[in-house]
Design a binder for these strands. Structure first.
Lengths: 341, 341
DNA sequence: TTTTTTTGTGCAAAGGATTGCACAAATAAT
DNA sequence: ATTATTTGTGCAATCCTTTGCACAAAAAAA
């Protein structure tokens, strides 16, 4: 009716009906002490003027908004897109909205985003830290303020909070073992930057598998590089020129595996005949590559759901967890054409 | 200091210093009437107790939060991921946060998301409607309430609001013409659902190009199907069995083009020798396909930035646009191996 | 010295909704 | 008829911050 006007308030209803604010409030909440007649009248006018409760005012009362802050490196990574869907589902079911923010792997950005979210009084935070981040004062402050926090995917050992991660050690162990069983002997590992914990966990799993099968660990075959496809492609070129040419590559991510594939093909080598390749993340694109890329599937959606659950637990009245839980989710190696049998 | 406590307020500072609330407020905002001494003291305590202004209270005063609601079908679509980055950048520069929500192409979800965002009192909405949506009462309500709204990518003619779209007609026209110039004569169009306006615009462009070059429009070669890869693959199978086998396919999206590629290969046909293929969106995956997929590149990031700008304009004091602007962005056909020369 | 101006603070309302407490009217119990 | 209970509403404080107005003290001008 009144375009460009202020949104209708309960005041409005109260005035029209000649009752008090409290009565309107109670009528809308179906309070038992309010007469049926009054309730009907209030509801009628509310509908008439398209009244919607002002969440802002409610939030001020509750001292927090009805939303969970989600901080991820990049939403375009398949894993995060899935995780966000999982978070969204679980959060909505519990009546929460989510505020998604991306750090683009930048530490500065992460700090300011977290500050912003705190200032907006989100009910809690679900975070996967930027690869750049090494100082976690901003997250410690979140804890100090008593704001529920859950970390997922990327762990961060100094922070004592609930976490959901995948079993990176076992995942890499199994993938490596699979390569060994299929006859590979010189398995390269294309790792992420050396400060990234999940990369290091995988590296450990990789080494353990080699040891278990009495294979030499050749440090020329372990290469650290930034996450991009391009960096991986360059690193692979180096690998192919190394003293002992690899007959398999285990890459930290599918993006890196793809980079590796490109370089391998460019060098005139055949996948998987000359070199087998396994990636991580099981991105949809894997199915479209030639050969189809084998990959470690991570339960992103589930990870998001669980992370949310852990956060919701903290929001419970009587929560008092002394030893925050750390859920470790299992992965599944998806074998495709890039693997020789 | 006080873990699990309520966040510190200005009250706290005022009490400690024995001054009034207003003085604290003014000191923090560097009001000229406050003495330098008082300012220093206030600032000192503020830092000490880690005071952060409560955005909620501010928002209540301003009658809106410091955030823009962004509603998209799915964040995992490359176009939307880029657009979101563009929106985020522009919004942050203007001091706004963004709240991203995905509809998963569901009408119901879209309606409830929009309701939620309105109730949260976002400063404005940037929306790309779900493919399912045909009724736009929820968006009309946004307008009626005087909340700034911008539509992007997916147009919706009955809504008189600022829009940013790409020139779908010309994009399809040029792509079709390119196919014709490279010698194709039976060009199929793999369209989206018939109610989707941008699909229809592209269809019109496709037809115009055929007409311009005096080619017959063969309605057996125009197929409507849902957006998924699988549906496109099935539709393509049908196409390949049709009376007049196509020698080129223009697909509504890269996902659909990929579906088509799979079916074409499965049928034992060669791309581009037997059939040329062009998609839309220029997704990163295009480069990884064999053959590399040609595609119409859409300026997603830019689209997001412009959409945000149009929204910010509406937030200006004296905004009074009678004829809401519609920005039409140009696309660029990226020619790759899937196209014969 | 008296009047005017400047400087530094405080009071109180506003923004929208919730809720414990109080109170009157209606109903039930004695 | 009197007391006890139930039922329906309203008052006012609360959440946190901003800001126009008022007012006293200090400084400047007359």
């Amino acid at each position: 009716m009144n375009p460009k006007n202020n949104p209708p308030t309960m005041q409005e209803i109260a005035k029209r009906l000649g009752v008090s604010l409290s009565t309107v409030s109670r009528a809308l909440k179906n309070h038992p002490r309010i007469s049926e007649k009054t309730k009907q009248e209030v509801l009628k006018i509310a509908k008439e003027i398209e009244y919607e409760p002002n969440q802002l005012a409610l939030s001020l009362l509750n001292k927090r908004i009805n939303a969970i802050g989600v901080v991820v490196p990049q939403i375009k990574y398949h894993l995060y897109a899935s995780a966000i869907s999982g978070i969204e589902k679980a959060a909505n079911e519990a009546g929460f909205n989510i505020m998604i923010c991306q750090t683009n792997e930048l530490f500065e950005r992460e700090v300011s985003i977290v500050k912003e979210l705190i200032a907006s009084r989100v009910a809690g935070l679900i975070v996967s830290v930027a690869s750049e981040s090494r100082d976690f004062a901003h997250l410690e402050q979140v804890l100090r303020k008593g704001i529920p926090l859950v970390l997922f995917n990327r762990d961060c050992e100094q922070l004592k909070v609930p976490k959901v991660v995948i079993d990176n050690y076992t995942a890499a162990f199994q993938a490596t073992e699979k390569l060994i069983e299929s006859g590979c002997e010189n398995i390269a590992f294309l790792a992420g930057p050396p400060q990234v914990q999940i990369s290091n966990k995988r590296l450990t799993g990789y080494k353990s598998a080699l040891r278990k099968h009495h294979l030499q660990i050749d440090y020329d075959l372990i290469i650290h590089c930034e996450f991009s496809q391009e960096n991986a492609a360059n690193a692979t070129l180096k690998l192919l020129r190394s003293r002992q040419q690899p007959d398999a590559i285990l890459a930290f991510s599918d993006q890196m595996a793809i980079g590796a594939m490109l370089s391998v093909k460019e060098a005139g080598l055949k996948i998987p005949e000359d070199i087998s390749i396994i990636g991580f993340n099981n991105e949809p694109v894997d199915l479209l590559l030639e050969p189809k890329l084998s990959s470690v599937d991570q339960p992103g959606f589930e990870m998001g759901q669980i992370a949310t659950q852990l956060l919701l637990n903290q929001l419970e009245e009587n929560y008092e967890e002394l030893n925050p839980p750390k859920k470790v989710l299992a992965t599944k190696l998806v074998v495709r054409e890039s693997l020789r049998f």
